[in-house]
Amino acid sequence: MSEYTERSAQELVQPIILLVDREEPASEQHGIAAAALASAQAFLHDPANPEWHQWAEGAFAKSVRRADAKMFAKVRAMFPDQAVSTVGEASAVGLPPMPAAELPKLLAKLQVSGTQLPVGAPLPPQPLTIVLNASLEMSTGKAAAQAAHALLAWVLESKVATVSAWAGAGFPVGVVALPAKEFRKGARKAAGPVIADAGRTEIEPGSTTAYVVTAKTR
């Protein structure tokens, strides 16, 4: 399988920019959680944007791109209305969907493949947790994209009051990776959709990658 399969020119993709500091990178779970939260918070910032609905009805594509501190600051300056999502020591910015072939040059030159953060300290338990399939051995960037799929899918399918309560609590989000057997068992209690990957990068098409569980569904 090739590392990357080209998208169609007009396919909408949501860019997520993950800060990867060259000297003191965040730990992996923090980075994954920050990227996922950035995706959800970008949607919640402007849910009436028609491109969100067009995008959600299609391939639901995301692109997690890494940026060092200098480039991350440039992205923030280019998109001042988009908030920075921070989890622990990690930060990320989620943007609205845009055609794959029309990404601004600043974004297009940011790297997608090969993003890997150090394992570091795990996140403490949270009332909302993203569960990843550890057996797939995904890179940090791939896992971040799958976590973002799962979290935003949960937002889109949950009641407004449920999402508002989560937001009011400060958007708490945890991340755990489980072996295949435990992952499949836990999926029965998923609070939202179980994500199946399209297979464009790293893993086989149809692989189940992530889902969300909440304190009420465990």
Rank of each mutant, 00 (worst) to 15 (best):
Val175Met: 11
Leu136Trp: 03
His45Ser: 15
Pro193Gly: 11
Arg65Ile: 06
Asp46Gly: 03
Val131Ile: 15
Ile32Ser: 02
Glu204Pro: 00
Ala90Arg: 04
Val84Thr: 14
Pro97Trp: 10
Met78Thr: 11
Gln10Trp: 11
Ala191Asn: 09
Tyr4Gly: 10
Gly206Cys: 07
Thr214Asp: 06
Glu102Tyr: 03
Ser113Lys: 12
Arg65Ser: 02
Ala67Gly: 06
Leu19Ala: 04
Ala90Leu: 10
Pro99Cys: 10
Gly168Ile: 05
Pro80Asn: 09
Met98Ala: 11
Lys74Tyr: 02
Gly199Gln: 08
Thr140Met: 04
Ser39Arg: 10
Thr86Met: 14
Pro47Val: 13
Ser8Cys: 11
Pro99Val: 07
Leu156Met: 15
Leu152Asp: 08
Arg22Ser: 12
Gly174Cys: 11
Ala33Phe: 05
Thr115Pro: 02
Lys142Tyr: 07
Val93His: 04
Pro124Phe: 01
Arg200Ser: 01
Ser27Trp: 13
His45Ile: 00
Ala143Cys: 13
Gly31Met: 06
Ser2Val: 13
Ser39Gln: 09
Ile130Trp: 00
His149Met: 11
Leu103Glu: 12
Pro80Ala: 07
Ser85Thr: 10
Tyr211Arg: 02
Thr217Lys: 07
Gln146Asp: 06
Glu57Tyr: 01
Ala38Val: 05
Leu132Lys: 01
Ser2Lys: 14
Gln111Trp: 00
Ser85Gln: 06
Val119Lys: 13
Arg218Gly: 03
Ala90Trp: 03
Leu95Thr: 04
Pro80Trp: 05
Leu152Ile: 15
Met78Trp: 05
Thr115Tyr: 01
Ala108Thr: 01
Ala177Leu: 07
Ser63Tyr: 00
Ala190His: 06
Lys216Met: 03
Trp166Arg: 03
Phe43Arg: 10
Asp21Gly: 08
Arg188Glu: 15
Lys181Asp: 15
Gln126Met: 11
Thr162His: 03
Gln54Thr: 15
Pro193Met: 12
Gly141Ala: 11
Ser2Asn: 14
Gln14Leu: 12
Val13Gly: 00
Gly88Arg: 06
Pro47Trp: 08
Trp154Val: 04
Leu95Pro: 05
Phe60Arg: 14
Trp154Ile: 09
Gln54Cys: 10
Asn133Trp: 02
Pro96Trp: 07
Asp81Met: 11
Ala144Thr: 12
Glu23Val: 13
Glu24Cys: 07
Thr217Ser: 15
Met138Leu: 15
Trp154Met: 07
Ser85Gly: 08
Leu152Gln: 14
Gly186Phe: 01
